[in-house]
């Protein structure tokens, strides 16, 4: 059996990569994909702990997180479509009508 912390470390790495994506990319959809990456890293952590504790709870948490991610994806993509309608781009740096 693989020790739990290997999974945790993998999850941390994935989470950090996701964060990096959010911070460094301009394409809205890529950013959103990075966020999905973060969420999946979290799922991995939950599952690792769930197995560690032999608890279904962690597993079910992941189930709900997936649902959340799905909902976010639906709304998020709709927002991008709307953004594209307005500006013909989904470069988030272009969304700068409001500042200061």
């Amino acid at each position: 059996m693989i020790p739990t912390h290997w999974f945790l470390i993998l999850s941390a790495i994935l989470f950090a990569i996701g964060v990096c994506g959010v911070l460094t990319r301009k394409n809205g959809i890529t950013i959103f994909m990075s966020i999905e990456l973060m969420v999946n890293a979290v799922n991995l952590t939950f599952l690792a702990y769930a197995r560690q504790f032999h608890q279904i709870h962690g597993l079910i948490f992941v189930f709900f997180v997936m649902a959340i991610a799905a909902a976010e994806a639906a709304v998020g993509l709709a927002i991008f479509i709307s953004l594209f309608h307005h500006r013909a781009t989904i470069d988030v740096d272009e969304a700068n009508l409001m500042r200061w």
């Binding site: 989470f15 966020i35 973060m38 979290v42 939950f46 702990y49 948490f61 927002i79 953004l83």
Partner: peptide, 28 residues
């Protein structure tokens, strides 16, 4: 309005990631 929605969405989803990760660690 659309832009606001976009900003809130991206930031919100980003923050959700952190909340979830924190929760996971607490769970651990």
């Amino acid at each position: 309005s659309n832009e606001a929605s976009l900003k809130y969405f991206l930031m919100g989803a980003f923050a959700t990631g952190f909340i979830l990760y924190g929760t996971a660690l607490f769970y651990g």
